[in-house]
Design a protein around this nucleic acid. Structure first.
Lengths: 205, 205
DNA sequence: GTTTACAAACAGGTCTACCGGTTTTTGACT
DNA sequence: AGTCAAAAACCGGTAGACCTGTTTGTAAAC
């Protein structure tokens, strides 16, 4: 009887080292993002994350020697998901979007995500921590630049036109501001109303 | 020879208890806001604030029994300054502002202030701390509602018109988003350009 | 003389980085 | 195939630093 047949008594599928590492790293990163949403940055500790991730603290500290390494990796994971999913085209063949569609896509897929607020909290908290701050900013710029170019093209603008780039920045700033508003405000409809109002104004501009 | 004449040897102006309390409370609050800007929320401790405020830790803990009391008082001070200064009329007799003037006034006096980002960080960090979060939100709503009404009147809108209120919210959301953008972005001109772009769009809406 | 503000030291708890020991995987060699 | 040493992943405990809330004592104001 071979070993893999006795999975009940020996639940050890013999994974490679890379698989083992990846699994704990992924579990830790996801737990970190969730904890950022659930309990906030201040409460995050390596002990807590290890518990939430169902991982021993030793495994965590092995994969992430310093606490900041863990936070950076979690942020990296989040940004990667945004990057890989962008521009969220249910119709990938379409190369153009109306402004309305762009706004909705950005809001539904990024800015309304509680993880966006979590990322904001992390960015703000890391603002003064030079090591952590630099690491997070580096991760961000690697995709922000690309995202902006894609977005300009998506709405039919010229990539070399500063004005078009600025308009995209304005869209993003507005959604960012509304997302922040939503995180403080109790009324869940306000955000939607603000977006509709902005769409109406943007259409005539 | 009276006591106040010997100020060199006895530097004690004999202040009242209220004056003594107020001075340490003010020093602590201002040091807290500055520390929020300089080192960030995470690094704030009663010990650090006492040092920065040139106040003994005993004095601090006497005035603010719990650490959160200190943070709440600092936030209160900041919001009070915003409230008392609003709407920043260099011409107080004018009861109407153009949209351009309103945007500039809000940006110059609130959103471009580094303390605004500090307040954001504090609000986000307090999101999950129910006691602190409630206290901060209570302070905020006591002036937000009033501010919005004043602002609607200021641009000639009807206070009972939901649409007018929503427009004000949109203005604030945009400025909020730009302020956040500025805190991450290295280019200091972008914020100004975005505001000018928004003014142009808002004028035609 | 009593109350208030200030001062400093203490106790209890938590967190991080590190460390020695254990299990699992790997790859080279027979 | 099977063996076995080295490497990688994992585990739990500890030391040292920090921070908060409290407490005991002193000075100033009332």
């Amino acid at each position: 009887m071979s070993a893999e047949a006795t999975s009940k008594s020996h639940p050890r599928p013999r994974r490679t080292q890379a698989e083992r590492s990846l699994e704990t790293r992924t579990k830790v990163c996801e737990a970190t993002l969730q904890a950022l949403i659930d309990v906030g940055y201040e409460q995050i500790s390596t002990t807590l994350i290890a518990q939430k991730a169902q991982v021993s603290r030793g495994a965590l500290t092995h994969q992430f020697p310093a606490r900041n390494d863990m936070l950076v990796a979690a942020f990296q994971l989040l940004v990667s998901e945004w990057r890989d999913g962008y521009p969220f085209g249910s119709d990938p063949e379409r190369e153009q979007l109306t402004v309305d569609e762009l706004i909705d896509a950005l809001w539904d897929n990024i800015f309304s995500d509680p993880r966006y607020i979590a990322a904001m909290e992390l960015m703000l908290a890391a603002r003064q921590d030079n090591d952590l701050g630099h690491a997070l900013r580096d991760i961000l710029v690697t995709w922000i630049g690309n995202r902006d170019k894609i977005t300009v093209r998506l709405v039919g603008g010229d990539v070399d036109d500063d004005e078009a780039g600025l308009k995209v920045q304005l869209h993003l700033s507005i959604l960012r501001g509304i997302a922040m508003h939503q995180s403080f405000d109790s009324d869940p409809d306000t955000a939607r109303k603000l977006i509709e109002l902005w769409k109406r104004i943007a259409r005539n501009a």
